[in-house]
Design a protein around this nucleic acid. Structure first.
Lengths: 192, 192
DNA sequence: GACCCGATCCTAGCACCGCTAGACAATCGA
DNA sequence: TCGATTGTCTAGCGGTGCTAGGATCGGGTC
């Protein structure tokens, strides 16, 4: 059995390598540059090997998205836990979210802009995605205000953050005033 | 001179045909289906003809985006003009924006998701884009609140709308509660 | 009215894409 | 040691955006 176990380990290791390489390449040169040929060359295997791990390019994007969601959830919870008081917590949350999007644009795209074949807002939604949303909900629920459904409030706040993240990065909005936009958002949206 | 004028007219007419066909095809089957070959076939010319009008596919997307921006600006101004009172005006504006995005998903993508090679938030930004933003600014500036820069307020409000539009359409957010999200957004963000 | 020449358009092809069939080699179990 | 299974590769399919170069058509001039 030990031989099979070793092979399984090596296979899992290679799968991690594929995802990590795809992510790295995407961050360096954008997702357009992540072709199956280039990816195969970088991991030093032939193209069809990719298809023994993933159904296609979409699934590779999906894997990067899940990895990113887990990281984002961790970052959000960490930021929320060190801040004291609802206001500081929400502000830290918003800053952390936008910071993550700015520092990991390709991962952010995999999560929210590209088609990674993942289900959202459904029962079959993968756990990391649910958890990232839950991380937002945990901090935002307490500032939703009376009579406002916490989930709905979180959706709206999240949408605003997502809009700021994408429009800024796509050059639709000057990047300098991000901090002031965050303050405005927190001041107005949250009930403190 | 009349012959040249006729030719110019025909050329301009064909250019409109290209843009309209690209838009139609994109709305019917998504932008992935808008290939230069299919587009050429639909307008009943050969592929290279497209390149005598546009530098490439990007510029065609950009042309659709500009057309869409002009329409959106018109729709926003129309909605704002019939509502009386700041609150009704802002609500109508938000609804109209989201409605436009939902009814013209491909055009909306051309404007804000895809790369149409257009400049944003700069001096050389094409007029229709500036005008669409101005349409938002006209109605939103009056509810920015004291001491808040109207442009910045508009950016934040716009980002929230953009987030709602894209996340809803991409299935990241259940579409049923849109109206309640709009109300929450207007209630909290606008100073009435 | 005939001819030339420039504008216009098309055929054919480039390099690349995602993905897959089928040949081949290495490894395992009997 | 041999057969079967597993794993990997080469080669190729139909598609993409884009372009070079030849054919054709029509207006302007003699």
């Amino acid at each position: 059995m030990s031989v099979q176990e070793r092979k399984q380990r090596e296979r899992a290791e290679r799968e991690r390598l594929i995802v990590a390489t795809a992510r790295e390449l995407a961050e360096q040169q954008g997702w357009d540059a992540v072709t199956t040929r280039r990816l195969a060359e970088r991991i030093e295997y032939s193209q069809p090997v990719l298809y023994s791990h993933f159904r296609g390019k979409r699934e590779i994007i999906g894997a990067v998205a899940l990895e990113g969601a887990a990281e984002m959830a961790t970052a959000l919870r960490a930021a929320a836990s060190v801040a004291d008081g609802p206001r500081a917590r929400v502000t830290a949350l918003a800053r952390t979210y936008l910071d993550f999007a700015a520092r990991n644009p390709a991962v952010y795209d995999a999560m929210f802009q590209l088609d990674g074949g993942l289900a959202f807002a459904k029962e079959e939604t993968p756990q990391p995605l649910k958890d990232a949303f839950a991380a937002l909900l945990d901090s935002l629920g307490e500032v939703a205000g009376d009579g406002v459904h916490p989930g709905r409030f979180t959706e709206v706040f999240w949408a605003a953050l997502h809009g700021l993240a994408t429009l800024t990065r796509a050059g639709r909005m000057p990047p300098e005033d991000t901090e002031q936009r965050v303050e405005l958002l927190v001041d107005r949206l949250a009930v403190l």
